[in-house]
Design a protein around this nucleic acid. Structure first.
Length: 203
DNA sequence: AATTTGCCCAACCGCAGACTC
DNA sequence: GGAGTCTGCGGTTGGGCAAAT
């Protein structure tokens, strides 16, 4: 079943449940939030929420900015190349969506998480059911228990440098640090990961 | 045409680490 | 060093839409 990208996804998602505004953001709220961030920058979210006169918590404002209003957000279809990259990075990093998103310019952790949950996890399961593609996740897991642990959804946020085996190849902070802002060339990253897979096979 | 089903994805929640006083 | 607050992350929820019946 093909799904269309919503043209105006912020129209009416969730209904307000409490006194503060909740649910879908209106275009007016978006505009106010963007204005305040333009002046004060994307930090001190509680203050931003107050300055914008929005009856929303700072957390909600931050999320809206990061996932929707931030400049250079790429929306819509994930390309095959990006999908491949997500698969490879997930194999290395587990469910560390923010790290994975950091390697995909313009994509948000939420988007990648959603894409994984709705598309890739099914693909993997289908392959596993057919018996042919179990290696997608297990290849790594069999060799590196840390990857499995990190991807198990425990909520634990291990430091990149604490990774053993798989991670030790890319221990460099600049490589894994989510604050690493430079957009990375997808082709380069794919090649890098191929190298890493080769290294994994060597173990 | 009306209803049901399946799925996507924006937004919320809880937790933990970082930061400030 | 401890308490309180802020920020960021991953997991989960549920409203809305298109397809199927």
């Amino acid at each position: 079943m093909s799904k269309m990208i919503p043209i105006a996804p912020n129209l009416s998602r969730r209904l307000p449940k409490r006194e503060s505004n909740r649910g879908a953001w209106t275009t007016e709220e978006d505009r106010k939030l963007a204005q305040v961030i333009e002046v004060h920058g994307p930090r001190r979210w509680k203050m931003v929420a107050a300055k914008a006169g929005l009856n929303r918590c700072g957390k909600s404002c931050r999320l809206r900015w990061l996932n929707y209003l931030r400049p250079n957000i790429k929306r819509g279809n994930i390309s095959d190349q990006e999908e491949d990259l997500i698969l490879r990075l997930h194999k290395l990093l587990g469910n560390r969506w923010s790290l994975i998103a950091g390697r995909l310019p313009g994509r948000t952790d939420n988007e990648i998480k959603n894409y994984w949950n709705s598309h890739l996890s099914k693909k993997i399961k289908q392959k596993e059911d057919r018996g042919g593609g179990a290696n997608l996740l297990q290849q790594c897991g069999a060799r590196c228990a840390d990857c499995v642990t990190m991807g198990s959804g425990s909520g634990a946020k291990g430091e990149p440098n604490e990774m053993t085996s798989c991670g030790s190849f890319i221990q460099d902070d600049a490589m894994l640090d989510s604050s690493f802002q430079e957009p990375i060339n997808l082709e380069w990253m794919s090649k890098f990961l191929e190298m890493d897979e080769g290294w994994l096979d060597f173990l």
